[in-house]
Design a protein around this nucleic acid. Structure first.
Lengths: 237, 237
DNA sequence: CTGGACTATTGGCTAGGCCACTGATCCATC
DNA sequence: GATGGATCAGTGGCCTAGCCAATAGTCCAG
């Protein structure tokens, strides 16, 4: 409604709570000193004093770390580190290694191939309409000389929805941010958007025909095509 | 080292911290009153009084809920709910629906088939040795009339390791607890452990021969066999 | 050598208080 | 009328001070 959004205002200024900073300090301290599972943090009273905060605030930070699974606080004993760290999250596991593009492609292939197959079996007419709509959007986007990143995501989201599996959708969502990176890379290649659109059409047709094998094959080929770029880029460095 | 573990001692007694109970109460309260994203929690002072805890404790509970992403606490304004809930975690998403056995099988099929394929391409001799060892363990286990649940897990873990993909391994780990349930079901069927062992041998042979397609096919058949039971059980109720 | 009592250490939780931020309202100014 | 400043009530942020409760180690009696 705002009459012409004014470019981009400074920034909403990300303000942090004290406990967040404290938690941050503690984790860096853990990393720097190379503490491992089973090691103990200093007593709350001492740690609070050293960090210059009250015990209450430190306690909040420990609650946060406990929820995330970095430490476990034991009444009367102390605060000990767990081995888990925050490794329970898939994405972070990868981000740590920075460039695991091949692995991303592996899992994407595994999931999307299955998703395509299921979509061919389970899709409703509405699902199909959504998929077709995303194809149109991508075609239009390319017409305008755009790369069609959004439309690309829209297509994959529509197919995923058509598979009617919450778990698969959930897992895809978890690695979505990783996939997005490779997606942008790929679509930046000259002529790639058009190839991608062709691939999408093949997948859509197989789903329309309710042919699981063809859908899986088409999706597999599509993911492979994308991987070319990503892998190439990987070797370049 | 303990001379003969004494069956199963009572229970370590799961003690909970007050803030956990408070957080629990708040979430149930949210659910019962059907609060949605954007709605506000009562002021801390009032809420603390109503729950019969101090503001400090309530604050800890709110930190926990904030870390999990249920609420966002705004200084000077109030505590508002986010729409995210705890849906970021795959396992919990499923546990909520309790019996999503078919979905678990879908994703297991997607991941393990790919893993088998990769294992066939990338396995080292050591990987193969580990896989063979798990087969021996399962055979021995069955000899003893056991169901071989542990050996079964060991086999799949060995294959996963042979795929040399941290991301896939990580994702498998995320849904491991869910798979375990279906695994126990399956192996409880009479004669099933032996069938399972045969399936494992076929997979191992394909990996030994470095034949990705055969490995994928064998794994797919294996997962399908397991699904029979699980799906059957699903229909029974 | 076992079992119980004691004690120092450490976290759990509360009470009460002051400060900082937010949003609404009102009003002086232009 | 619109703008910008001042004010105020409500709300969270964080602190101090203190007592309670659990733990683990020590020591002693049996």
């Amino acid at each position: 409604m705002t009459p012409k959004a004014p470019a981009e205002l400074p920034t909403p200024l990300a303000r942090t709570r004290l406990y967040e900073q404290v938690a941050e300090q503690i984790t860096t301290w853990i990393r720097q000193n190379g503490l491992k599972a089973g090691d103990r943090l200093p007593p709350e009273r001492e740690l609070a004093a050293r960090l210059g905060v009250s015990r209450a605030t430190l306690s909040q930070a420990l609650v946060a770390l406990e929820v995330v699974g970095v430490v476990v606080v034991r009444h009367g004993d102390g605060t000990v580190l767990t081995g888990k760290h925050s490794e329970s999250r898939i994405v972070e596991a990868i981000r740590a290694h920075a460039d695991r593009m091949p692995e991303i492609i592996d899992i994407r292939d595994a999931l999307e191939t299955k998703i395509a197959s299921l979509a061919a079996q389970r899709r409703t007419d509405d699902d199909l309409a959504a998929i077709d709509a995303s194809l149109d959007a991508m075609a239009a986007s390319i017409e305008h000389g755009d790369r069609g990143v959004d439309a690309d995501e829209q297509f994959h989201a529509a197919v995923t929805a058509a598979a009617h599996s919450d778990l698969l959708a959930q897992t895809m969502r978890e690695i979505a941010s990783l996939i997005r990176e490779s997606r942008i890379e790929s679509l930046s290649q000259p002529g790639r958007p058009r190839n991608s659109l062709t691939g999408h059409r093949a997948i859509a047709d197989a789903i329309r025909a309710r042919d699981p094998e063809a859908a899986a094959a088409a999706m597999h080929a599509h993911v492979e095509m994308v991987s070319d770029v990503a892998l190439l880029r990987e070797e370049e460095r």
